Each structure stands twice: as C-alpha cells, then as structure tokens.
Amino acid sequence: MGVITYDMEVTSSISPAKMFKAFVLDGDTLIPKVLPQAIKSVEIIEGDGGAGTIKVITFGEGSQFKSVKHKVDGIDKENLTYSYSIIEGDALMGVLESISYVVKINSHADGGSICKTSSTYHTKGDVQITEEQIKEGKEKALGMFKAVEAYLLANPDA
C-alpha cells in the first residue's frame, strides 16, 4: 500500500470556535442545507457522533460520486481538532483503501481563523494518484469551507 499526504491551509474571518461549531459539530445538518448540490444527506449509522461513529454521506446530484462511509477518528472540542477517514464508497475510486483527514482550526492574528487540513491517501498496491485528482479533492473541500464561511457571514446569529 502506498501513502500520499497533502496539506492545505485556508484562512477565514470567522472565529475559530464558530467555524469549528459550524463546519464540524453542526456540519452534518448545515452543509446539506448550504450545499445540497454537493451533499444531499449525512446519516449516522453507528455511534453517537464521537470517535468511532460511522456516517453515510450521500452526495448531491451535482457530484460525480454517490456516497461514502465516513468514520470519526477523533474530536477535540477544546483544541478545535477533528480527524476522520473515508473508509468505503465510490469516492475511493477503486484505487484507495481509505483517505484520512486531520482538521485543526487555529486563531488568526486578525481575529479570524486558519483551517489546516492534512489529507493522507492510502492507495491499494502500487496505484499512483495524479496531482490532478488531489487538486480536484482540494478544490471541493475549499468550496465547502468557503460556502460555510459565506453562510456564517450572511447569518451572523447562526
């Protein structure tokens, strides 16, 4: 199995605690509301939302994929860290065993936040993933982050 790791950083004017609450803690209901074309639904099939929870994410009609199983590896509300893995589904494209993510939201000097994400792709055998495939995934993640940010800016009491 091969391992490929990519890191991404995104800044936001939203405070770290508010962004973590929206993107991580309330994300299962908020993201389908804000981006129904990307995420149709999120359903917990095992667990209570904490570490070990398994979710089925059904993608919207605008997606090239149908669904994935998402496992929560850890949530640290005090340190604003969330880790999870995609463990099953067509987004693994038959060439990946899993994709693991670690998301950390830090304070930014301007009062906003910096979201740091580390993605680790676990490939099957000697399969190689192209830079273009990784770029597509990063762009989708960035789009989701920016959509949640725009929603929070438009709805400050949310």
Rank of each mutant, 00 (worst) to 15 (best):
M1P: 02
V3S: 09
I4Y: 00
T5R: 02
M8S: 14
E9A: 13
V10A: 14
V10Y: 13
V10P: 01
T11P: 00
S12L: 01
S12G: 04
I14Q: 02
P16C: 07
P16Y: 00
A17M: 07
K18S: 10
K18L: 07
M19P: 07
F20I: 00
A22W: 06
A22E: 04
A22M: 05
A22G: 03
F23S: 01
F23K: 00
V24Y: 12
V24W: 12
V24N: 03
D26A: 01
G27Y: 01
P32S: 04
P32L: 02
K33A: 05
L35N: 02
A38T: 15
A38S: 15
A38G: 13
I39T: 03
I39H: 03
I39G: 01
S41E: 15
I44F: 10
I44S: 06
D48N: 15
D48F: 02
D48T: 15
G49P: 09
G50W: 00
G52Q: 04
G52L: 07
T53Y: 07
I54T: 08
K55E: 08
I57E: 05
I57S: 08
I57C: 12
T58P: 06
T58G: 07
T58R: 11
F59R: 10
G62T: 03
G62I: 13
S63Q: 02
Q64C: 09
K66T: 12
S67W: 02
V68F: 08
H70Y: 15
K71H: 08
D73S: 10
D73F: 03
G74S: 12
K77D: 13
N79S: 04
N79Q: 09
N79K: 14
N79H: 06
L80F: 14
Y82V: 09
S83W: 05
S83H: 05
S83E: 12
Y84G: 07
S85I: 10
S85N: 09
S85M: 08
I87F: 04
E88K: 10
G89R: 00
D90T: 12
A91V: 11
A91G: 11
V95K: 04
L96D: 00
E97F: 08
S98C: 10
I99Y: 05
S100P: 12
S100L: 11
V102C: 07
V103W: 02
K104S: 06
N106K: 05
A109G: 00
D110C: 01
G111R: 03
S113Y: 06
I114K: 01
I114M: 05
I114Q: 03
C115Q: 08
C115G: 08
K116L: 11
K116C: 14
T117A: 09
T117Q: 05
S118D: 05
S118N: 12
S119I: 12
Y121G: 09
H122L: 07
D126R: 00
V127R: 11
V127T: 15
V127A: 13
Q128Y: 04
T130R: 05
E132P: 00
E132S: 09
I134D: 04
K135F: 11
K135A: 13
K135R: 13
E136G: 09
G137R: 09
G137T: 10
G137Y: 06
A141N: 10
A141M: 10
L142S: 12
L142P: 11
M144F: 07
F145L: 02
F145V: 01
K146Q: 15
A147S: 15
V148I: 12
E149C: 08
A150Y: 06
Y151E: 03
L152D: 12
D157V: 07
A158S: 13
A158Y: 11
